[in-house]
Design a protein around this nucleic acid. Sequence first.
DNA 1: CAACGGAATATTGTCGACATATTAAAATAA
DNA 2: TTATTTTAATATGTCGACAATATTCCGTTG
Lengths: 221, 221
Amino acid sequence: MTNNKTTIADRVFDTLCTAIVEGEIAAGSKISEPELAKRLEVSRASLREAIGRLEACSLVTRKANIGARVVSLSKEKLLEIYHVREALEGMAARLAAQNITAEEITQLQQLLKRHTDEVNQADGASYFQRSGDLDFHYHIVQSSHNERLISLLCNDLYHLMRMYRYQFGRVSQRAFPALDEHSYVVSAIADGDGEMAELLMRNHIRRSRRNIEQMMATDQE
Amino acid sequence: MTNNKTTIADRVFDTLCTAIVEGEIAAGSKISEPELAKRLEVSRASLREAIGRLEACSLVTRKANIGARVVSLSKEKLLEIYHVREALEGMAARLAAQNITAEEITQLQQLLKRHTDEVNQADGASYFQRSGDLDFHYHIVQSSHNERLISLLCNDLYHLMRMYRYQFGRVSQRAFPALDEHSYVVSAIADGDGEMAELLMRNHIRRSRRNIEQMMATDQE
DNA sequence: CAACGGAATATTGTCGACATATTAAAATAA
DNA sequence: TTATTTTAATATGTCGACAATATTCCGTTG
């Protein structure tokens, strides 16, 4: 029963957020307030409010008197995010092991099973990497019951991570190993072993990062 | 040679930021836009822009059609921040060990020496805890050379940490041990031992957290 | 007297217009 | 022609006013 009142700025934020994440508004491109306001049929005030929130979750950057532009993506920035995620989600797993509820454990195990079925059925194909993986991490973070951690990972960094996945988006060949790693993390959390849960989660994310580093290196660029 | 153009919203943000951090505007209190705008002699538009940035660094919270209020402080929230810092600054120390420059090492050692002198001279008194400690952590984070980590710790969380220190602000008895812990961290970083640097930094922050937990427990509340 | 409902008040959200800074274009000088 | 300065055009920052929502106050009803 949270605050559901929706304002124009809210809708504009949602619209622009998905447009940016999905690349409809190109990464690195400048945002023209008059043009966008006209196109979306809203006032510049509402648009500017929305842009401010986009800046808060690092989807755009603003300079005084110059304006806003969509964040530009780079290998280096992506790897930086992975370092942050390794630290933050490692801690989230540790705290989840301490604070998770019985219902949440059940939900997590069901989610894991669902993902397993989907990956097996699709022979390791895209769905898992596209949204399932983020789902899993999302649930673990929620189970930490640390509001600040949740806010950082599920509000501030979440959209940016989706943006990279969407636009840099080769689907990794790690679907099966990643699934195993997920199940180990869940086991440690269910056992209440925070130390182990953190270790396993960190290793999982570190492997993802190294996998990306490798792919980026073999690609030109 | 960064963007130094200063706008009204910038000044208002700075003003409100320090006012909130120092408790001049009470924690938990509501922010009235008409009143504040009149008092600061700016338009509501500029004020709202500033409030949006305050929200981005968690100094105020906003609800649609209801308004903004200064964040309320609590023991639980403070401990949550310490968990986040343990994870993030631990990673920062690890990365600093890998990426720090020779000049930065020298500066860090000089900072450490200065703090040692000050604490010895003041017999473990307040200066160190008030700003010196944050200074030290600030420098380590900068030396990680991870822009996202720097932004999270030195922009997003920085003011909130200052606010807690300012308002919850008993000066800990840990000045001397904390100083030792700092020097160990610096040694590990200077040795390029990221694993050790992270471990030491995490232990350091965890001890601070436990110290606070204890003091909070012995205090009523 | 308490609880409920409605009018009056105040606050936030949104808008269009103006002020100021930046960028693009035109004009001049080398 | 190229470079530099001046001028025009465009974009962002700021403002005051209006609309929509929330809060307060007050009278009614049980």
